[in-house]
Nucleic acid binder design. Structure first.
Length: 267
DNA sequence: TACATATGATCAT
DNA sequence: TGATCCTATGTAA
């Protein structure tokens, strides 16, 4: 479930459990054993996120860099949960235990490395909030690529993934293929505002919910069961929540994308 | 059992 | 663009 909101939530949850505490760190899988040994028994002093990257700082200067990728998970588990051999990293303090599996990145880095990582990332809406809007607007105006590709570009903005991209474009009524430099200023502003708003909500709820109050009535009436928290993502062939058309699926920047042909017209 | 799929990113071609 | 890495889950056979 890793888009930016997940990682910020994760950073906050790990902070609560481990910051200012001595942490037991092991690698049941073995692939991170040497590094885990360097953290074992050391205090975590800070836990933060930038886009989809997680950084946990330790008292001895080490920084744990985690990127979950597509399938990685870092979850709180029962202390007695068996340490299975897919667990790259296990962190424990008193009754709190966390297991990291399937990460794309799990490494110890230095402060300089951390700067390098961050320098390659665009602004994170959850860190800069509405202040990031003008920069975003400017960067969009300079690019000709489709907005649906741009939103996944972590160098333009950090933290958006495939679910938010589809949902943001739906809420803003923008066709995914629209070239960035054809996006009006007011649309770019709207996009940024929705981005900040949805990511904040996602972090709070620890899941992606994009449905707005005004649409809740329609949704109940139409389609009781499935996926009632999203407008477009993975809803191919189903009724649009705001018009009689059906959501369609296509491919953009190597990933599937969904949109409503009526609510998101080509310009 | 096997296969497809997944909220990602990188590297090769 | 396609192959590849990492793991878990759901569906098909």
């Amino acid at each position: 479930m890793p888009e930016g909101h997940t990682i910020h939530r994760l950073a906050a949850d790990l902070r609560k459990d481990f910051v200012s505490k001595r942490v037991e760190a092991t690698s049941p899988q073995g692939r991170f054993a040497e590094s885990a040994a360097l953290l074992n028994g050391i205090q975590m002093i800070k836990s933060e996120a930038w886009g989809k990257h997680l950084f946990c700082h330790w008292e001895n200067g080490n920084i744990l860099h985690v990127h979950l990728g597509l399938i990685g998970k870092f979850r709180k588990v029962d202390r007695d949960d068996p340490p299975r051999d897919t667990i790259r990293l296990r962190l424990v303090h008193e009754s709190s235990a966390w297991h990291l599996t399937g990460p794309q990145t799990c490494a110890l880095i230095t402060e300089d490395d951390l700067q390098d990582v961050i320098n390659k990332l665009g602004p994170d809406p959850l860190r800069v909030g509405l202040r990031g809007m003008n920069k975003f607007k400017k960067r969009l105006g300079e690019s000709k690529k489709p907005i649906g590709a741009a939103l996944l570009d972590q160098n333009l903005l950090a933290g958006i993934g495939n679910v938010y991209r589809a949902e943001l474009l739906f809420l803003c009524g923008i066709h995914p293929e629209t070239p960035c430099n054809k996006i009006h200023d007011y649309q770019a502003e709207e996009l940024w505002k929705w981005t900040v708003d949805l990511l904040r909500r996602g972090k709070k709820l620890n899941r992606i919910v994009t449905i707005q109050d005004e649409d809740k009535g329609t949704i109940k009436a139409k389609n009781k069961k499935r996926n009632n928290s999203l407008y477009a993502y993975k809803r191919a062939g189903l009724d649009c929540r705001r018009c009689p058309d059906e959501i369609v699926i296509s491919k953009l920047a190597g990933r599937s994308i969904w949109h409503c042909p009526n609510c998101q017209k080509r310009t």
